[in-house]
Amino acid sequence: MIIVERDIVLPVTLDEAVSYLEDFRRTEHWDPGTVRCVRIDQGSIRPGATWRNTSRFRGRTTDLLYRLEIRDPEHLVFVGTNKSVTATDDMRFEARPGETLLKYQASLRFKGLAKLATPFLRAEFEALADKVAQRLPSAVAERHD
């Protein structure tokens, strides 16, 4: 399994940060690997809400079905799956005066033969996490829809 972690300061209140990030379709604005992300169910965003996320990595495009597993006032967890990987985005929020500290952890558990590539992909996922940490504060501040 690959786990990458970043502490990211967001220039908005905790409520604004959680409200923005709970809608996973917005990954298009802050995750450089996401090509497209579309909500596939309806209603309010709640545990069980689902999105189809199309990502590009190493020149290949893949789809994952993401589900919101945890939605608490200071904690969001999304789990994405397909036949070769389970991806988990775990976001913990801490209010600060005029801003929010996001403790972001992304983990990838590869399945089948894809497991063999795990040791060789860590550096690329670390670089991707650095890009997320750079893009996320401005995306949240601009609150793209």
Rank of each mutant, 00 (worst) to 15 (best):
Q42E: 15
M91L: 15
A87R: 10
D15I: 01
P97T: 12
G59W: 03
A106R: 11
Y104D: 05
F110P: 14
E28M: 01
K115H: 09
E124W: 02
F125Q: 11
L101W: 05
R135T: 09
V140I: 13
G43W: 06
L101D: 13
S55L: 03
E22G: 04
F24T: 01
A133K: 04
G33C: 12
D31P: 08
H29D: 02
T88H: 04
R39H: 03
R39W: 04
Y20N: 12
R135Y: 07
Y104K: 09
K115C: 13
L113Q: 06
S107K: 03
D15A: 11
D90V: 12
G43L: 11
P73A: 07
A133V: 07
I45H: 10
L136S: 00
V85A: 09
T118K: 10
R109C: 02
V132F: 00
F110T: 06
F125H: 08
E94P: 06
G98W: 06
L113P: 15
D63W: 12
H75K: 12
E5Q: 14
A141D: 15
E28D: 08
D7N: 15
F93L: 06
G33K: 14
A17W: 00
I45C: 12
K103Y: 02
F57Y: 13
L21C: 09
A133N: 07
Q42S: 15
L101H: 09
N82A: 11
I8Y: 03
L76E: 12
V12D: 07
T118D: 02
R52K: 15
T13M: 02
T81L: 13
V18R: 05
F57V: 11
V4R: 06
V9Y: 10
S55H: 00
F120S: 10
C37P: 01
A139Y: 07
R46S: 14
P137M: 05
Y104L: 14
L113W: 01
S84C: 06
E22A: 08
D41F: 07
R58V: 03
Q42C: 11
